[in-house]
């Protein structure tokens, strides 16, 4: 393949990735829309429920995802400049961040479940309509987002393997760039989920 056709394929691959990210924005956008309209209808219940969540766990998760974004961006630059080893280490840190994020989620959710707050639980059924809606949305939205963190971590781990095997080279980094774009989008979604579910009370 000559140089022009490689960069043309790359431009198409990047455009394809952005189009996929647009569909993701719309999917989470629907959940944000639900949150906003129910919050307007049940302001007090949403505010009280948000107060029950642990701000510090949410903030730690924001820090974790931002650090992941930081490391993947660095890894793209490192690979482009020929430092494969550094790129792999940075990707490993990002995957570790993904694991930490999910572990925090596990701590948070097991705490909630122990307190009897999960969809259809007897405790939740006795709460107000607004609180039931808040926690329903909380589980669906954060669950879907957590699934994205898991997928993003797996994809970045595969990218590290590709670099190790030599199939992802400094001359052609588009796979890593697209994987990194996915992680950034997942990070941006948390940038909004964090204030909506943890900070706004």
């Amino acid at each position: 393949m000559n140089h022009a056709s490689v960069s043309e394929t790359n431009a198409t691959a990047r455009l394809g990735m952005w189009l996929f990210l647009f569909t993701e924005i719309m999917m989470f956008g629907g959940l944000f829309l639900l949150y906003a309209s129910y919050r307007v209808r049940f302001p007090q219940a949403f505010s009280d429920s948000a107060q029950q969540l642990n701000i510090w766990l949410g903030a730690a998760n924001a820090l974790i995802l931002l650090t992941g974004s930081f490391c993947t961006t660095l890894s793209v630059t490192a690979l482009r400049r020929g430092s494969r080893r550094l790129a792999m280490i940075l990707l490993a840190i990002t995957v570790l961040m993904g694991g930490l994020f999910l572990f925090n989620h596990y701590l948070e959710w097991s705490g909630q479940i122990r307190a009897g707050i999960y969809p259809n639980s007897p405790v939740l059924d006795h709460m107000s309509h607004g609180e039931i809606l808040f926690f329903g949305l909380y589980y669906v939205t954060l669950g879907l987002h957590g699934l994205h963190v898991l997928i993003g971590s797996i994809i970045l781990a595969v990218m590290a393997v590709f670099i190790g095997r030599g199939s992802l080279t400094p001359e052609d980094t588009i796979k890593l760039e697209n994987a990194s774009l996915f992680w950034h989008l997942v990070d941006i979604i948390w940038i909004f989920l964090f204030p909506l579910y943890y900070l706004m009370h």
């Binding site: 431009a11 930081f70 961006t73 482009r80 400049r81």
Partner: peptide
């Protein structure tokens, strides 16, 4: 269409954005 590969971001701009 911009078919060119853009230059990689500098480490400095990445660190500043992170901060």
């Amino acid at each position: 269409m911009s078919a060119e590969n853009h230059a990689p971001a500098s480490y400095r701009s990445i660190v500043l954005t992170y901060l």
